[in-house]
Design a protein around this nucleic acid. Structure first.
Lengths: 261, 261
DNA sequence: TTGAGTGGTTTATTATTTGAACCGTTGGTA
DNA sequence: TACCAACGGTTCAAATAATAAACCACTCAA
């Protein structure tokens, strides 16, 4: 792993839950040497990607992010382009829908919308990176992504988030093989104990998967009827969203009629 | 300069005017070795800070920015907190107002607002980094910032943007000395041939300058009456904005009654 | 006073980054 | 068709920059 990657990974530890991290805590989290971490933090701070809270001496995200975000959204307003469509899709299916993009070996949420039609709803944190092996969106990426990505993720030790997280590489590979036929992936309580979700791929320019769209429901509400509706919604929106991103479905991609599970 | 800084600097070349940059163009812009630049670009892309346009093979800002922005604004909603105040201030003074934060040896715009009350107006690009020696905001930073920053900026060769840009370090130091008494800085056509502006400091937690607030007007409109109004507006808003940022004015800071120029 | 927790710094050692030259494509032109 | 230039990308020895262990200074609580 290069120095740049190591440094930038530090930024990933910051979230809305943990807005600020001190040197020692970083050392614990990363298991790296203190001097190394410190140098990286200082350099990131000098570049404006972090800033040090003068009171606590902890490090938090810096102002450089603001400018870059402005440029990115001005040039390719992904979030603002997707949002209205995701909202419409969420209204239609009556459940929380989110889109995430591949970023290294994780998924980074871009937009989500919850129509809030039910008493219980899925808590979705747009600032939390999603693992590839334990979420429906993630498995979609592994399924339609390249062999190298699949190998890198499945050959590494896999974290278990719930009692139902599948961490056996062979079982996962089997599941992926099935999914390729279906065109979508169903995961039950893989990342959260009470949430199940169905996800489909989003293809970008050049025909490669760039991300995934996912419908997440409380598992208690995931009856067969609901699941059929979700499959139907994906069938409709997967091509639309890919088109929106300037991509198109690969020739060998097809969404089969399936009873997931 | 460290590797991390070198890599992250690549991101600064991207703007709304230049949304995407190819390898060769980067080599030209940075004057660095091609292999080096390429490795940095690839690593930034792997981290999601850049992504490669599969059609043109050019590099543009990646999705990682989106998540980080979300976290930053959720934790410390600088932009959204400042915006209403800046809009009010701009309405009051009837001219474009912007706030920028220090980022390395440049200023990064955070918010701006133009009340658009006049036929001519200043064109302000929120995605463009501002130099410290040629803008009112920048001189404010040099004036109230640390000796090290002042030395680093003034000892390096200074770029001339207009015929009136002051690039002589000694003249600049003189100007800075005056400004420290005034509490604000007036710069005429230093960065743009038709724009003049008045800026004041914003202090953060710990009492250090973190950025500047600036009022920018077409030089043709910058009569003595207008300038007096601008000074008055700064007198009112500088303390407010610093307070908003959790900081307070240093004991030795005072805004004198001055006729700039 | 002691000990454990911070944040931060120094040093030789080590490993990574670097840069000149090279390769394979593409697209325009003689 | 042959040629040339410009592009993105790769290779490998040489040089530089990152690293890890130990250390320092400080704060807090026991």
């Amino acid at each position: 792993m290069g120095t740049i990657t190591k440094a930038l990974e530090l930024l990933d530890y910051i979230s809305t839950q943990r807005p600020e991290i001190g040197l020692s805590e970083y050392v614990r989290l990363t298991q790296r040497d203190k001097a190394t971490v410190h140098r990286h933090l200082v350099e990131l701070a000098e570049c404006g990607f972090l800033e040090q809270n003068p009171e606590t001496r902890g490090y938090r995200l810096g102002p450089a992010i603001l400018r870059l975000y402005g440029v990115r959204e001005a040039n390719m307003p992904l979030r603002s382009v997707l949002r209205p469509f995701i909202e419409e899709m969420a209204q239609e299916v009556g459940e929380l829908v989110h889109v995430s993009l591949l970023q290294g070996q994780q998924l980074s949420p871009v937009v989500h919308h919850d129509p809030r039609l039910h008493g219980t709803q899925v808590a979705f944190d747009e600032s939390q990176l999603l693992p590839l092996h334990a979420t429906a969106s993630g498995l979609v990426m592994l399924c339609f992504g390249g062999d190298d990505l699949r190998a890198r993720v499945l050959d590494a030790p896999l974290e278990s988030f719930t009692a139902q997280t599948v961490v056996d590489p062979d079982s996962l590979r089997e599941k992926l093989a099935e999914c390729r036929g279906d065109g979508s992936v169903w995961v039950e309580k893989g990342f959260d104990d009470e949430v199940s979700s169905l996800a489909g791929p989003i293809f970008g320019l050049g025909g490669a998967v760039i991300g995934a769209v996912s419908i997440a429901v409380p598992s208690s509400r995931a009856g067969s009827e609901k699941r059929a509706a979700m499959v139907e919604a994906l069938r409709k929106w997967v091509p639309r969203l890919s088109e929106l991103m300037g991509g198109s479905l690969p020739a060998d991609y097809q969404q089969r009629e399936v009873s997931h599970g």
